[in-house]
Design a protein around this nucleic acid. Structure first.
Lengths: 150, 150
DNA sequence: CCTACATCCTCTAGCGACTAGAGGTGCAAG
DNA sequence: CTTGCACCTCTAGTCGCTAGAGGATGTAGG
């Protein structure tokens, strides 16, 4: 029985220590056994689960989606239609997001390019912000979602 | 003196009523005068400011950046170097984000395509999540930022 | 003038996915 | 035996809103 401390689990999985505890709190990770001194003792399977979660988060899946994916993984006889649906939905979202960001990029480029580097009263950046009519008006507007910093 | 109610201001600017009050609370918007019955009474200049803010938020600028941009707008004799820098930083961020999302898209497509629509134990979606080694490993990882839904 | 009803007011709490810090305990090395 | 790091629990903060409670105001019709 190699018992893995939370710090070691963090190093092996790439998930930060407080985040591991957080995942336990919200039920993504089952409560591990404890040492004599009440410290969490993980097993290799827990590390795999953490890696799975981290990877899914990096791909932008929400915690709820990951919860579903994990239950699917735990029961390999089920149809993978749900997993497929979740991944497809995520793909659609990513595509939408890319489109929005491309539109933004165009506008920001125009703003930055138009800036004469003079005083504010000639600044295109400020001007465009003040008057939406001056946009390439590729009606931007991004869908919301937070994704971890890495 | 046409006094504008908060609801009318909301309609004219496209910023929701509670959001306007929120902006006042965090100091993006100065406190407007009040009617006899303590209701906020806005002026046309406030509407412009709200439109400015909304537009900047749509372009993904953070509230702090907007605060700076607003003080620049208020004092048109300043150099626009700061505005320029903020916009450029935002552009770099957007470009980074697009690159990350493109990498994601490639991986999600591979996952979805590889799914045989059978049972979970043959599902590429689950498999790839469990083992990062199977990625196109375009080392994804998105920078964080929340942007409004539209 | 009275009554509906929409709109306004303040205040607090909640969202998602963490992150930071306080204040205390466990454990391994010197 | 002490140092010092890693661990524990708990609460509160982050960002940019959004939702709801519980009450006051404003306006239009009867």
């Amino acid at each position: 029985m190699k018992k893995i401390t939370i710090g070691e689990a963090s190093r092996q999985s790439g998930v930060k220590v407080p985040t591991i505890r957080y995942y336990e709190g919200i039920g993504l990770l089952s409560e591990p056994s404890r040492s004599e001194g009440n410290q969490r003792a993980y097993e290799p399977a827990d590390i795999s689960r953490l890696v799975f979660i981290r990877h899914a988060r990096e791909l932008g899946f929400e915690v709820d989606a990951i919860r579903t994916l994990l239950t699917l993984q735990d029961d390999p006889h089920q149809s993978c239609a749900s997993a497929d649906a979740i991944a497809k939905a995520r793909l659609v979202d990513v595509e939408q997001r890319i489109r929005s960001l491309m539109a933004l990029k165009v506008e920001l480029e125009a703003m930055v390019e138009g800036c004469g580097h003079g005083r504010v009263d000639q600044c295109r950046v400020i001007e465009v912000l003040a008057d939406h009519g001056q946009c390439a008006h590729a009606h931007h507007g991004l869908p919301a979602l937070n994704i971890p910093a890495s």
